[in-house]
Design a protein around this nucleic acid. Structure first.
Lengths: 238, 238
DNA sequence: CGAGACTTTGACCGTAGTCAATTTATGTGG
DNA sequence: CCACATAAATTGACTACGGTCAAAGTCTCG
């Protein structure tokens, strides 16, 4: 289970040259200290391995999301999880089927292991409070309910940039972005075709650059204004 | 503060004839036992009276909502609160201004008062768990992100019907609905004009009837199917 | 009865969805 | 390292859902 080995060593940390910073360093330490890192392939279902009740994990590398699938196949992604994020994996209490899915190769570690198991303390990000989790959901509701396609996309990019920056996974406005346009569509409540066209529009307008799985925000200040993005303090937006 | 009196005696319980059931009965008892019921006018801001930190209240009568207002004036309502609902009133942790607003005349009571103050126990609804609150938000995200205008509206009506039924505030598919179309628009992420037209469409199709502040769901089963509504068990949907 | 709040309507426009085909990666086996 | 199969991105043509603007009705309430 933990020795998928050899070919392993997932991609994110590999680019340590480009994106080296605080938490990234700890990740490799965590990985070497415990053999208890859980790995999932793209599309892997995080709930599958649940034994007794919910479980809190921290993402070491890769991306994941949680979502609902409607009876007719439509999907809504509620939030994206990136390295450093805490995921509170649990079965959905209601009728609809909430699921947690890996979007890339994914490494997570059980929080309890980190808490008691370790000899050396690790700079893991704090678990988000209930309010912070809720706020993130509110932001998603605002995107879905009030923003246009173009605004939604910029808004999401800005949020991801900010979150990835917090763990050292960005550099000068750019960050690795391993999601397909289909996933973006499900997260933003848009059709895949429209995601594609909107992306091109943003490129034409010189707001973002998307090349080989890397997104670059070229005018963060202007983008934030356009998308009514309020996440970061204006200062951070260059 | 609590003796707004005389003209008071809000509307919901007045219609006790039509909508009498479990919890409604207790409401009048609560109201008479304690003078500590807080009242707000339509549009009243529930946060205004916060003294020390957050506060949990239960709605005795009237409707409320929580929302964000974007810098350019757009509004997104996250959830609607009806009689029996618990509201966890608190300042927003992030940048944007979350606010809790009364949508009609509103009566709430502090949960702590109910807990220790009372001589006689009251059948108050249980406080929702974290998961239940979260689920409600997920439902809202699905509505905003995946459903069409018509679907959203039906879906919301069905949810409200189910919730109001739980506290005895419905009868044969109908319930009091004191919201303006503008509020519906903000809750559903639609324009006010489109809300109006969609409403008429639903009427023409014989799915709902809206007369003088009362909504009647004429074909709950079909509506649930149309709107992919999964809240209640199929049995309940007649 | 008049003022203001809500609802309704018409005309028109633009964002976003659908369908279907094409091009461009990506990946795998030989 | 090439050929083929598959996934992902892109394009075109067309449609329709939903937004905007502005005006006209309705309803409430003092």
């Amino acid at each position: 289970m933990f020795n998928a080995s050899s070919t392993a060593e997932p991609q994110e940390p590999r680019s340590g040259k480009l994106f080296a910073k605080p938490w990234t360093a700890d990740v490799s330490r965590v990985r070497s200290f415990w053999g208890s890192v859980e790995r999932f392939p793209p599309g892997g279902n995080l709930i599958g391995r649940l034994r007794n009740g919910p479980k809190q994990v921290v993402v070491l590398s890769g991306w994941a999301c949680d979502m609902w699938i409607l009876p007719d196949g439509r999907r809504q992604i509620f939030s994206l999880f990136v390295p450093g994020d805490h995921i509170d994996i649990r079965q959905n209490s209601g009728v609809a089927a909430r699921s947690f899915v890996a979007l890339t190769r994914l490494e997570v570690i059980d929080r309890r292991r980190l808490a008691n198991g370790g000899t050396e303390p690790v700079n893991l990000p704090q678990a988000p409070s209930f309010e912070e989790t809720e706020d993130r959901h509110f932001v998603q509701m605002v995107r879905l309910g009030q923003l246009s396609g173009k605004e939604r996309m910029l808004h999401l990019f800005l949020e991801l940039y900010e979150r990835l920056s917090a763990v050292g996974l960005s550099k000068d406005g750019s960050f690795r972005f391993p999601l397909t346009q289909e996933v973006m569509a499900d997260a933003l409540g848009l059709s895949i075709v429209h995601v594609n066209r909107t992306l091109q529009q943003l490129r034409r307008e010189g707001l973002v650059e998307v090349r080989s799985g890397t997104v670059t925000l070229l005018q963060r200040g202007r983008s934030a204004a356009l998308a009514l993005y309020q996440g970061a303090s204006p200062a951070q937006l260059v």
